[in-house]
Nucleic acid binder design. Structure first.
Lengths: 216, 216
DNA sequence: GCTTGATTCAATCGACCGTTTGAGACGATT
DNA sequence: AATCGTCTCAAACGGTCGATTGAATCAAGC
């Protein structure tokens, strides 16, 4: 077994188990056991459990965010300037839901990516600074271009709600299946994407309530 | 120190630490240390760490869901039948955000309640069956009454997105403050509530895209 | 003042944790 | 054939974990 084989086996097993049980609840012994490699291999190849977790997340998060920007570029280019709000929202949400497509049975990556927001191991902070700063700025401007009448702070809030809808769907879709007695599931990713884009775009377009009216 | 004093100290400390660090990352020694009680007191008063977690969550979740239903009843009664969509949505979101009001500095309950969806300790399953089944049904019917043209499955999805926006805001609002360079924060809960209700209600009202149009 | 039940306490249990070690296996290079 | 990195392995390290024990403490009832 070559070096890279072992690294891949560890990454695959860790991704699965981190997604199922969370970061702290998953032991290196469980990971190496599932991967069929020696316990010491994690520290040899990755240095520590935290570095392994970073590697697991980056492996999918970096290409995901690249694809988001690629799709945003594409639809801005098509529109020769300002893309439609639905296209912008779909550029953000679509690639994330696409990850759930191949992942339907195991739900490893899906749950993991949905969970990175609410977990807060020490390494999460730097991850956001590295991977999300540019992304947020690009999408902020794209949405502002679609909705010029909105204050920037309102756009921030609505982007926050968009991320919440996505993250919640990625990591707790089984809950919805339970409550809906099976009527709603992640079987048809295209349908989920359409539902989410429709909801979020409409929420983004909501007229702002003036402060005077809101507080009387 | 009386028996109930010790129980309260433990509940308070556990709530705070579970919210900050998560369930598995928080040790009984950290909890009893912060509470100023003996380590064995947790197992004596609650039986186990899991039972303690259930008690911590129920202490706030049960009154929260009661308040939601109380507010829903109130606005349905005022409207003599069908309440407005904004009122229904506010009945669900308002009480949750109100918890963040007293909690601004410590963020114990807030983060904890936002996290119960994405964490999945073994006891979470029964918790949903016990505490959420009725609630979901009541709000489902209230929303369906406001939006009779929507399929039930669409209403389920949109309720799911509403819960996602709320949970994400409860447990990761510091992230939004970071990205928005401090322009958005949870300082003014009334404003956050209004932002969220506006967004969610507009998302709920979105016209459904017909399947034919969506797939061509 | 003694008894009784409820509570607190220090000490300890076995299990599991992440990490480290040093010896061996393997393949490529000389 | 000997050498040298790269990698794997069993074993062990010191610590922390949740849970339990049995003795000490306390308050209330008689």
């Amino acid at each position: 077994m070559s070096s890279s084989d072992t690294k891949q086996q560890i990454l695959d097993a860790a991704e699965q188990l981190f997604g199922e049980e969370g970061f702290t609840s998953t032991s290196l012994r469980a990971i190496t056991g599932a991967a069929g490699v020696n316990l010491a291999a994690v520290n040899y190849h990755f240095g520590s459990k935290s570095e392994l977790a970073k590697a697991v997340i980056s492996r999918h998060l970096v290409p995901l965010n690249q694809e988001r920007l690629r799709r945003l570029d594409a639809c801005e280019k098509n529109a020769k300037g300002t893309a439609s709000l639905e296209e912008v929202v779909a550029s953000f949400l679509g690639p994330a839901l696409d990850l759930a497509r191949e992942d339907k049975q195991t739900a490893g990556v899906t749950r993991l990516l949905g969970r990175i927001y609410s977990e807060q191991p020490p390494f999460i902070g730097e991850l956001f600074a590295d991977e999300f700063q540019d992304l947020v700025e690009r999408f902020l401007h794209a949405i502002e271009a679609c909705l010029p009448e909105l204050d920037r702070s309102v756009v921030f809030w609505r982007m926050h709600f968009m991320v919440g809808s996505m993250a919640h769907t990625l990591c707790t879709n089984n809950l919805l299946t339970l409550f809906s007695s099976g009527h709603c599931s992640m079987q048809d990713i295209d349908e989920v994407t359409q539902q989410m884009v429709t909801f979020v775009a409409a929420g983004m377009r909501a007229p702002v309530i003036s402060k005077v009216e809101g507080s009387r």
